[in-house]
């Protein structure tokens, strides 16, 4: 495990369970020679894996470029919340990135811009827009679309040479399906300061349903619904979910029922009033040509939303109003 002598600025937590191939891609996307504008000394990656029949190979991890630390845990609870909290204990960085689903690989600018977001303000909640690989949400893909299909496509585009090629075959994920100028319901890769994670006592261990249920949604809102927090969106970057038989992204017969249970649990913790994070975000970063269509889509949907809310005489960013944050644009 990492020594605490020379702490990096950032710690990135990656939670893994039974997704060896996908998680290795995610870890490759966190390597120093893939991520731009960061040095190895800027960050560490804490990989916490709950034991399964298909675990990561520690030797393979040790060959990655960067400071990777792998912890294999025995946990039969089916939820990642305990793994998250154990990882948070190990983090030495001041700014913590959380990838609660280890199947989400990143574009090459994420860590550099996250570092900039923290330089801008220690209160930055830095969110990386989420995409599903493939031309539609993965739960809506036909049976012919499989993990093998996806991995073959990834190999064919040589994504490690230019990670922005991931935008070529992607679809906004359901957690931010209207684009990043809409309130974020969920974000599969975000960064907040150690102090802000401590303020909410880490990851809520009451979320014990399969895969943690809606823990990721709860965590984002718990962090973001705070007047100190400055929401930042890395508009030109993305986290890309790979098919791996996940709880909500696999088209199973009981998916709807399962999601309803998750939603009920979530609402029970928010007095029946859970909402996406209705905070006006700051954008930060460069916009590569490959991400322009997504920016255009996001801005169109933002205009549609604005028109609708004006008609209903409702505020654009209700949480900013409730938190009495000075109106930003």
């Amino acid at each position: 495990m990492p020594s605490r002598d020379t702490s990096p600025l950032m710690s990135i937590v990656v939670v893994v369970y039974d997704m060896k191939q996908q998680a290795m891609n995610t870890l490759r996307s966190l390597q120093t020679d893939y991520q731009q504008r960061v040095a190895a000394s800027d960050y560490e990656v804490i990989v916490v894996e709950n034991d399964s029949a298909s675990t990561l190979n520690p030797e393979e991890i040790s060959k990655l470029n960067g400071n990777f630390h792998h912890l294999l845990r025995q946990d039969t609870s089916k939820t990642p919340v305990h793994a998250c909290n154990e990882a948070l204990e190990l983090c030495r960085g001041q700014y913590i990135g959380m990838i609660i689903d280890g199947a989400c690989m990143l574009t090459p600018g994420v860590l550099g811009w996250a570092k900039s977001a923290y330089a801008m303000s220690e209160h930055s909640l830095c969110m990386v827009p989420g995409y599903h690989l493939g031309n539609k949400e993965q739960q809506n893909q036909p049976d012919s679309y499989s993990s093998d299909t996806e991995q073959k496509w990834l190999s064919s585009v040589r994504w490690q040479e230019d990670g922005y090629r991931l935008f070529k075959n992607a679809h906004f994920s359901p957690g931010n399906k209207h684009g990043y100028f809409h309130p974020f319901m969920e974000c599969s890769c975000f960064f907040a300061s150690r102090a802000h994670f401590d303020r909410i006592n880490g990851v809520d261990e009451r979320f014990t349903q399969l895969g943690g249920g809606s823990i990721n949604l709860h965590l984002l809102r718990s962090l973001g619904y705070n007047s100190d927090i400055i929401p930042v969106v890395l508009a030109g970057e993305g986290n890309f979910h790979q098919v791996h038989g996940g709880v909500t992204t696999t088209p199973t017969t009981d998916r709807e029922k399962r999601i309803k249970n998750f939603s009920d649990e979530l609402n029970s913790h928010w007095n029946g009033q859970f909402h996406a994070l209705r905070r006006d975000p700051i954008i930060l970063g460069n916009i590569r040509p490959q991400s322009l269509p997504w920016l255009k889509h996001s801005s169109h949907r933002a205009s549609d939303r604005s028109t609708l809310l004006k008609q209903k005489r409702k505020p654009l960013w209700a949480d900013d109003e409730t938190l009495r944050i000075e109106p930003k644009p």
Partner: peptide, 30 residues
């Protein structure tokens, strides 16, 4: 190449959208 920074107010969305459209039509891929 610039770094983009700041919130996008409602009124500026149309300029953002048009800018993306303009760049998309002619932008050389890197």
């Amino acid at each position: 190449r610039p770094i983009y920074l700041g919130p996008i107010p409602d009124g500026a969305m149309k300029f953002l959208s048009k800018s993306a459209q303009q760049a998309e039509t002619t932008h050389a891929q890197p």
